[in-house]
Nucleic acid binder design. Sequence first.
DNA 1: ATGAAAGCGCTAACAG
DNA 2: CTGTTAGCGCTTTCAT
Lengths: 346, 346
Amino acid sequence: MDKPVPRRVTIVDVARHAQVSTTAVSKVLRNAYGASPAMRSKVQQAIAELGYRPSAAARGLRGQTYTIGVMLPELRNLFFADILDGITAQLGDSDYQVLLAPGCNGEKAEARVIDAMMDRSMDGLVLIAPVSAKSRLNEVARSVPTVVVGRHGASPAYDTVTDDDIAGAALVVEHLAGLGHRRIAHIEHHETDRVRLAEMPNAQRARGYRDAMILHGLEAEIDIASTSYTQTGGYLGAQQLLARPVRPTAIFAGADVVALGALEAIAEAGLSVPGDISVAGYDNSALAAFGPISLTSVDQDGRQMGIDAARLLVERITDRERRTAQVKLSPTLVVRRTTAAADAED
Amino acid sequence: MDKPVPRRVTIVDVARHAQVSTTAVSKVLRNAYGASPAMRSKVQQAIAELGYRPSAAARGLRGQTYTIGVMLPELRNLFFADILDGITAQLGDSDYQVLLAPGCNGEKAEARVIDAMMDRSMDGLVLIAPVSAKSRLNEVARSVPTVVVGRHGASPAYDTVTDDDIAGAALVVEHLAGLGHRRIAHIEHHETDRVRLAEMPNAQRARGYRDAMILHGLEAEIDIASTSYTQTGGYLGAQQLLARPVRPTAIFAGADVVALGALEAIAEAGLSVPGDISVAGYDNSALAAFGPISLTSVDQDGRQMGIDAARLLVERITDRERRTAQVKLSPTLVVRRTTAAADAED
DNA sequence: ATGAAAGCGCTAACAG
DNA sequence: CTGTTAGCGCTTTCAT
């Protein structure tokens, strides 16, 4: 009556039940070389009969843990959720289990999470938009197979998967310029760190914006509000821009959430979108697609990024000596109802 | 030049460096009884100097893994993110690391994830809105400390944290009836399973709706569209309701996403909110609070639910014999711009 | 192709 | 209070 904890079934039990050695069972578990079909089926039957499940802790002590860790800065960001979908889709039928840490913002939280994952002997890591120092990332990648998503800059130690943010920003400027806009402003995420200045998507988007403005002969119209990639950042940034002596006729927000904040500020100012001012975002998150918002946005195909990241990671786990790869995906522009032709008078 | 993998620092290295036994080190690591302050500091210094980090795999083989697993059906649901915030806030300074599985919908995916977490010897599990059979949940909880969030029904094996969904639904009906509405319809999540019919929040909300309608003498006006708790479900449900010979003047959607879908259908039908029809949701997610949407919604305080869940879980890890508890939190109604007084003529 | 045996890094009895 | 020692469940040489 009182044996509610009937001791875990171990590899020894399976071996005994199947009348083979534990080595044999281990081989079957790992699909390793050196087990005859006959033995294989005998063992598999025993496993099924006993309901055996290997202990990841014990496996991890010697071999793999069959666990992939994913770190991302923010769970609420729908774009990150898309990346995750891609990762899990790609890893769905493999033996790997994906586990993620709850949103961790900032270098300190990142360090904690990465340590935690390494402590748990994870077989591979996917780091989404990490802000840690590059030296730290390299160090991590040297000790565990790692793929970095959403941060530019090649590394000898880890693979990268990014969106071509410069091209994405150019798409927006091109679109708006094509609609007759000249005073196209940008809300960027303020960045101080040198390396991040070059590697983070936000910096690349701002650069793409500048380049494209120059390319369209709008160099004199370049106008950037420097806040942060948050809804509040968008709100404040738009307020700044709307207070200009001559108001911009279009705002390119560096992210969809930023655009949402901008939309709020614009509405509060009594202006209409796209009548008085056009707004475009970046990420094409579900929020952008949502009917009442219907935001023109750059689509990064986060799902594909996740698929590529998972693929690269498994490849690297298999062959740790392979040279690192940099996958850069081309974004597309999804035009919706927040952008329209500029008034002729403007 | 070529020793990029300098072998992990182990407890043995620390012991040697501090000139004590491994037991001593282990005790310090676990804050266990039986280590003098002098030894404690000696060991801590050695740990710092060597940059030692305990291997979770090795610990898990004997003792705890200091890992809490969280399972949730859907990452994109902002309410779940709130719960998670609460969990991490509560566990923030503890030694426990929270890891979660990417959204797993359906009984099969749930089983996989729960198994994966048990295989990894996690110290405790938080299951958010699980759909698995109750017998399965009990079985899981018997082998690992578990807290179930967002599913009613007490268990002898696990603690529960829920919202008082019946009261929440009543708040909405009361609010709408107070505004003069009589034809208040409801969009529910269709449920077939017997047990879930009683234990899932959606069923409780539908029941709360019925009860409250009767209480307000509106029994004859009860009108339920049975779809699902998704945006599409809301869209289709609203379409059904709008096609009635006599249209409802208010719709109580069982969740915010459902309300969003309903808003889309209403807009498509050329009706205005709240002019022609009032809409209320449930969850008070960030989406509901978002300006342009501004949805009247029931607030569950997901963060508090997470805090309670984490607290209960740690308590149960400490004392597995303690009797199970059921925490039920009272919801509040947040009135925004999607609900207004009914037309006098209606 | 198969199995015996030696650990992986840690914790938990138990002795001192 | 401190140290010795025996495993935890698995993988991995290395014989056979």
